[in-house]
Simulated scan of single mutants.
Amino acid sequence: MDITPPAINPIHPDLQRADGTSVYRPIGSHTYTTHWLLAAENRLLAAARRSVIPPVGRATFARVAGLHQGPMDTGQRALASSFALSEKLLLAGLGPAGAGKTTAMRLVASAVDAAGGRLIPLAPSARAAEVLGTDLQRRAHTMPSWLHQRARASTGSEPASPGFQLGPGDVVLVDEAGMAGTLLLDEILADAAAAGAVVRLLGDPHQLAAVEAGGALRLIARAGGTVELDQLHRFRVDGEAEASLVLRDGEDRRSAFAWYRDKGRIVAGTYDAMCDAVFTAWSKDQDRASPR
């Protein structure tokens, strides 16, 4: 179905192409979608409003949070408590790279474990799943592989592995959710809801989008079903955190580029020269990290 917005003003004949479109409308700018995709988006939005039994009780979370090791700022603790205690079937947590989203998820994982449930980490890609599993110290899956194994078990084609079981009190965590396709998220949501589990999305809608039809994380964020982090921890150079946020939000990119230029972070050269420079820098970092 065509969902291209109609022209606001009448088009003068001298400003029309042969097909009747305005010369000011870029060629190929028509937008299409399907009824299935719109229905999936509506189900995700409805899930962000639907109340269920939270995966962790307040007393359990307070006890686990009191024993949690490592520094956490107010935003990280708010994100962790929301993911564990929220009654919403679907809840999203947003934050730029370096905001400490994964650190907050370690507390969520501990709280879910203490409550008798399981936190199941999922990601759109194998690389992202590997990093997530390492950070949370538990097996992570790609979204398609998780759904595939769940489907095989449900049809009886193979015994249900304990690692792929899902039940009440479990939390399905989708990391890098901005890169997740909407239809995949819809499948994961339906599977979790049928099992009595909840879904938590983690990501940044300002980063890379999904290869397939996506945008669900941004849609949910606009609807208000999110918890957001805005304090960065990754950077140590004065001004770098602020510059990265400006660059991310796109409000005043000139000031951000000026910061990177003044710090010598912007270099120019031929393709071959830049490739050589990147390789040389990488090689030095590898040598520095290798044990002597």
Rank of each mutant, 00 (worst) to 15 (best):
D2Q: 09
P5Q: 07
P10W: 06
H12W: 02
D14Q: 00
D14M: 03
D14Y: 00
L15W: 10
R17F: 07
A18P: 00
A18R: 10
D19N: 14
G28K: 02
T33G: 15
H35S: 14
L37G: 06
L38S: 12
A40T: 13
A47F: 04
R49M: 14
R49E: 15
S51K: 15
I53M: 12
I53Y: 00
P55W: 01
R58V: 13
R58Q: 14
R58I: 10
A59H: 05
A59Q: 14
T60H: 08
A62W: 07
R63A: 15
V64I: 15
A65G: 08
L67P: 04
H68D: 11
Q69N: 07
Q69D: 13
G70I: 00
M72H: 09
M72T: 06
G75D: 11
G75E: 15
A78M: 05
L79P: 06
A80W: 05
A80M: 11
S82V: 08
A84N: 02
E87W: 03
K88F: 11
L91I: 15
L94H: 07
P96N: 01
G100Q: 04
R106T: 09
L107R: 02
A115S: 15
G117W: 04
L119P: 05
I120V: 15
P121F: 02
P121A: 03
A123R: 01
A126M: 03
A128C: 10
A128K: 06
E130W: 00
L132P: 02
D135E: 15
D135K: 12
A140R: 00
A140F: 01
H141T: 02
T142S: 11
M143F: 07
S154P: 02
T155V: 13
E158D: 12
G163I: 03
Q165N: 08
Q165S: 15
L166A: 10
L166G: 06
G167P: 08
V172E: 07
L173G: 04
V174G: 06
D175I: 02
A177D: 05
L183I: 12
D186T: 10
E187F: 06
D191E: 09
A193V: 01
A197N: 12
R200E: 07
L201K: 03
P205R: 00
E212I: 08
A213E: 14
A213G: 04
A213T: 11
R218H: 13
I220E: 03
A221K: 14
G225W: 03
V227P: 01
L229N: 10
D230H: 02
Q231Y: 04
R234S: 01
G239L: 05
A241M: 00
A243W: 04
A243E: 10
L245V: 10
R248Y: 00
R254M: 05
S255R: 12
F257N: 09
W259L: 10
Y260T: 01
K263T: 03
R265N: 11
V267N: 09
A268Q: 13
A268E: 14
D272M: 03
A273I: 01
M274T: 12
D276H: 12
A277C: 09
V278G: 04
S283V: 06
K284D: 15
D287L: 09
P291M: 05
